[in-house]
Amino acid sequence: MLPQVEPGQTPGTDTLPQAPQEPLRHLLGLEHLSAEQINSILDLAAHMKAVNSRRIKKLPTLRGVTVLTFFVENSTRTRMSFELAAKRLSADTMSFTASSSSLAKGETLIDTARNLEAMGPDIVIIRHSCSGAPALLARTVNCGIVNAGDGSHEHPTQGLLDIFTLRERLGDLRGKKVAIIGDIAHSRVARSNIFGMQKLGVDVHVAGPATMLPHAIEDLGCTAWPRVEPAMEGADAIMMLRIQRERQGNDLIPSSHEYHRFFGLDEQRLKLAKPGALVMHPGPMNRGVEIAPEVADGEQSVILQQVENGVAVRMAVLYLVGASRGLEPQG
């Protein structure tokens, strides 16, 4: 078992370093957050995680705050994680899942958003298949916007919970090597992690078939490899991304079988990483494609901890965005 480090805490004391908490009007991505902001969110998440281990898992913090989950792309898990986080902070939650039915009726995203805004939510959590949709919403409606994943752009709360999990297990992340493997080009999880981890000093390596590596990815500061072995070698953690089954049969990879052989994580390849390296996956997994079942369920896997930490991280984000609303001029 790896040592557990309580984030932000000076050993031997019960008090924390006092950093002023900056308001967070929206959470659209990790690209524009500072290392201090990320750390303060994660420090707060550690407190939220403690709440989640109590018998009464509830805080009164967001009483009277209405949180709307606005999912234009389906993701039951992420929506549930956000709803649970909101409920544990005593917020009222509503959910609106649009698929693209409202678009089919000729209603624009802005029309839909203004209609939802009229119901008076304080925070809108948006999931959308188009990159930039949360930014559009943030410009349009007077609510705190939390990005729950937009197209191939960012999935900031996933990035935060991944970094939280790393920090919990590895402590100081400076100089740690993390390999992110898979369809980097189409992955919002990859982008949020590349942006966020590097701010905390992580040496980020991305790898996958070159068809899945986007143009100029190294401009984001990471190292890219068209094969997985150099990325995995000596890594402190390996994050496998989901290979979308619907992408098979198009021109990115020949077959899932071939993908597993050359790019999947099995016990043999895991040995390339540091002993005890963490195995991560944002879920849902394709066992036998990007990850071998024995690795997914192995003792190095922190995949379920990621899910658990997701609620705490989302509580921290909702608290910050919700409380920052109080600073907005009302009416």
Partner: peptide
Amino acid sequence: GAIDVTLYRDDTWLKGPRAVEGVTR
């Protein structure tokens, strides 16, 4: 024991978010 009240305060809406001061244990 130690009790932190940051997340239970009644002035969150006036003062905005603040860092948690310490642990509750």
